Amino acid sequence: MNTPSEPGHDRTEPDLSAVVGERRQLINLAYRLLGSLAEAEDAVQETYARWYAMAPGQRADIVSPGAWLTTVATRVCLDLLGSARVRRERYVGEWIPEPLPDRTEWIGGPGGGREEPADPADWVTLDESVNMALLVVLEAMTPAERVAFVLHDVFRYPFPEVAGIVGRTPAACRQLASSARRRVRAAQVPTAPRAGQAALVRHFKEAWEAGDIAALVGLLAPDAVMAADGGGAVGTALRPVVGGERIARYLIHFAGRAPGLVLLERTVNGRPGLVARYAGVTATVAAFDVDGGRVTRIWAVRNPEKLRPWTEDRPLPR
């Protein structure tokens, strides 16, 4: 990656716009690796800090700034993944990846009408590689498996390049990605048609608003599971709620404690989901897993630290 300049050759630093232009790619990569927008921001900030800490001559010697930044960002994420496992073992209740909205659903559209988005969430491309079901599976992988899978299967880096980034052999990276794929297949991450899921989520919303337990039970798989993430900051179930009827009763009880609760259909990590707002503030963002025409999983994020892209200063349209 670093190539010495030839004797007598004038070295010039890489074009600043090209270096800064890598930020979108880095945020996308770091979010998929970490499952947290806040941690992804920190990782990218650290990456750029290391870039600008180098002497101008060192930066000029780097043939591909994009490759250098990607390598450093990935290694920073690897370090964060190792420490995150320890932190999440002490986390209060369930830890769920940070949900992201579709920026087109905000008032004023992308970046509120600004030329460049102000919120890092605006940088993340929402596709199947960030649906909540897959992010949850990624959380169960080892850091090495997760990095190999994301770099190769999501960002299409060839294994020799992956090996250079993570410091392992191409064969080892190939094995790590293969192991990660087996985890994904075992978890049966769904690929339900978006339109079908949207209709199911709409019916779910209507039944919840009506307080219709029977209707909710009919929309939930008998063995459905709901996990909630409050992070100890707000009250919520500390363990997953299992069973369609138990989930339905829990949701009706939750709504009963918050009169005036407003439910909105919104895109959550690229898939149809729900946002619950209370007293004008986003209280919960829910992502859904659908299979066989029924809801099989609900991930309800309530931790205010994870709802920054959904907060009052970026209002959702009615």
Rank of each mutant, 00 (worst) to 15 (best):
G112F: 02
A248Q: 03
E46N: 11
P97Q: 09
V137H: 09
D10F: 14
G244F: 08
L126W: 02
H152M: 05
G108L: 07
G8K: 00
S83W: 05
V92Q: 14
R32I: 09
A177P: 13
W310Y: 14
A214K: 14
D61V: 15
A171T: 11
L216Q: 12
W95D: 13
E161F: 00
L81G: 07
V147K: 00
A228Y: 05
R88Q: 14
K205W: 03
P272Y: 00
A84W: 09
V262Y: 02
L219A: 10
P158T: 01
P170L: 11
R114H: 10
S64L: 11
P304A: 03
P65R: 08
W68G: 08
A67S: 15
V166E: 12
A148V: 01
A248G: 07
S179N: 10
G164F: 12
G244P: 12
D42C: 02
P7K: 01
P143K: 01
L263T: 12
R277W: 01
E41H: 11
G82L: 04
V225R: 09
G93D: 07
V262T: 15
S83V: 10
V241D: 07
G112M: 04
A276P: 05
T47E: 07
L16P: 02
V162L: 12
R185E: 12
H203Y: 13
V241A: 04
L251S: 12
L264C: 08
R85A: 13
F159T: 03
C77D: 06
G167H: 11
L220G: 11
G273R: 01
R185N: 03
G230I: 08
F204H: 04
A43D: 06
L264R: 15
R294A: 14
W299G: 06
W68P: 01
S129K: 05
P240Q: 08
G82K: 05
G8H: 01
R168L: 06
F288G: 13
D15C: 03
D291S: 10
G235Y: 01
A224R: 07
L100E: 07
P193S: 11
P97S: 10
L261W: 00
R156L: 15
W299H: 15
P272W: 00
T3L: 14
I247A: 10
R181Q: 11
